[in-house]
Amino acid sequence: MTVTPLTTTPEVTPVQLSAAAVAKKRLSSPWASLAAIVIAVLWTLPTFGLLLSSFRPELDIKRTGWWTFFTDPQVTLDNYRAVFDSDSVNLGTYFVNSLMICIPSVLIPLSLAALAAYAFAWINFRGKNILFVAVFALQIVPLQVTLIPLLTIFAKVGIAGTFWPLWLAHSTFALPLAIYLLHNFIKEIPAGLIEAARVDGAGHVSIFFRVMLPLLTPALAAFGIFQFLWVWNDLLVALVFAGGGDTVAPITLQLANLTGTRGTAWHLLASGTFVSIIVPVTVFLLLQRYFVRGLLAGSVKG
């Protein structure tokens, strides 16, 4: 694995074999593989059960376990057809809404947090430490306490019921953790790089863009994925700010409503879940390579 963006630093050289790999190799390999397989199976099994369930007929789901599939395979696509039926469930519209909510809710906090993390790590200004601790501590404010005050503001400004409250709320809620994680990454960047740029007369703006941003890309991609997942799967914020109509509400909300006013609809939830997983999993697979060399947060100091 080559850590491309960091090759400019003399301290870190391309890694051929990581310590872990060596350790693993020396650990009796069959056991290591077995352990890995056990963990992987344990972690995948529950989801796998749901995947099978999503193709099973409604009554079978209620009456027998999903493993019955192996002895008595009954396959149907009805559950998937039902969730795309535009007259009732209509997941398509909510799918679009989820995307509309997610994109700004990832980009906005990401860029703001990058700026802030840079400031906390490399700019000496008064009150920096106190401010940083304050931002860090804000992670604990339970979202629930913010909902009514924020909705009141949104209603007064006249943007309630649009995408704006969701964008602003998600962006705000993401900031403390984003800043904390990015700061942990940014502060590990060798000081020499920044000093050198400063000597060349670069200001903080150009250092940020010319030096930091290229190094930060993987970390940003990594946090971007996390934030994307959190927003994509959020229900609480959506419940309060999006309501139940199909103009703004994301897919999670419709999934939650799927169970019907008074019924259980496990079959629809099963298929609906897989529709909603498609995007996050795709995003993960596509961006995984950034991920791998991405969050170097807290790695050994250069």
């Binding site: 005050p149 924020l150 909705l151 009141t152 209603a155 007064k156």
Partner: peptide
Amino acid sequence: LVRARAGN
């Protein structure tokens, strides 16, 4: 309730 209290 949330919506009513928030004026929305």
